[in-house]
Computed example of a mutant assay.
Amino acid sequence: MRPAIELKVYEINKIIYKKIEDFESEKDNKDIKTVVKSGVAEKDESKGRISIAMGIIDKEGERSIEAKVTGYFTINKDVIEEQGLDLKDTLSINGAAILFPYIRSVISMVTSLDSDNAILLPTVNVMEFLDKE
């Protein structure tokens, strides 16, 4: 059986890594901030896109990282219709779950280049991200 969506390619859109000596100057006190955006192509509903952007402040390591990853998906509309699924919800939920390990890996790899202590993101419930939109 074919999946409802398939990841075709992903790209890293942004990486900003910096050392921070004075966290008081940082505007946002949150340790992790995540934004997930999704969309279906207007002219071709068999194509979709998901972007995940994360900002992490590691106060103990005196550093921060911002990263954004975008994944491009093929949507199998016949499978979605056959299973009675909502196209946009399926893309948002499943696409974010498929793409999250990629941004997790990028953040871990970049932060490990500068320190023995890589920033390791825990596994997550993707639904929490989608509720924040």
Results as ranks from 00 to 15, higher is better:
N13P: 01
S38T: 15
P122W: 03
S25L: 06
E21H: 15
E24N: 06
N76H: 15
S115W: 00
R2T: 10
D116A: 05
L7P: 14
I50Y: 00
T90L: 06
K14L: 15
D114S: 12
V69P: 04
I12F: 09
I5Q: 08
D58H: 13
N76C: 12
A96N: 13
M1D: 09
K33Y: 11
I119E: 07
M109W: 09
R2I: 06
E62N: 15
I93Q: 11
I15C: 15
N29W: 00
P122Q: 13
K19Q: 12
Y102M: 07
K77N: 09
Y72I: 03
N76V: 14
I56M: 06
K132S: 10
E62D: 14
G55S: 13
N94T: 09
K68H: 01
E81M: 08
V124G: 02
V126I: 13
I16F: 08
F129G: 03
E128P: 10
I65R: 10
K33C: 00
A4C: 04
R63P: 14
I12C: 06
L120S: 01
R2H: 01
E62Y: 15
N125K: 10
A118T: 05
E42C: 03
N94H: 02
V106W: 04
L87P: 00
A53T: 08
I80Q: 07
F23H: 08
A118S: 01
A41I: 04
S46Q: 13
I119Y: 09
I80F: 08
I107A: 11
Y10W: 15
T34D: 15
V36N: 13
G55F: 12
E11N: 02
E6T: 11
E82I: 13
V124S: 00
D58Q: 11
D28A: 12
I50C: 00
E82M: 12
K27L: 08
A118M: 05
E60T: 10
I57E: 15
I119T: 11
T34R: 12
G71K: 03
I107W: 03
L113W: 04
I52Q: 10
I20S: 03
S105C: 02
I20M: 02
E45M: 04
F73L: 07
L99I: 05
E45W: 13
E11A: 02
I98V: 05
I57G: 10
K132H: 11
D78A: 02
K27D: 12
T90W: 06
Q83V: 06
N76Y: 15
K47I: 04
S105A: 13
L99H: 04
I12L: 09
M127N: 15
L130D: 14
G48A: 01
V40K: 01
V35A: 03
D89Q: 12
V9C: 08
G84I: 13
K33S: 05
D28G: 08
R104D: 13
G48Y: 10
G48C: 08
V36S: 06
A96E: 04
E128Y: 15
E60M: 11
M127C: 10
P122T: 09
I57T: 02
I15H: 07
I52L: 08
T123G: 12
A4L: 04
M1I: 03
D131V: 05
E11T: 06
I12W: 11
E66L: 01
S108M: 06
V79L: 06
T123A: 11
E133H: 10
E62C: 10
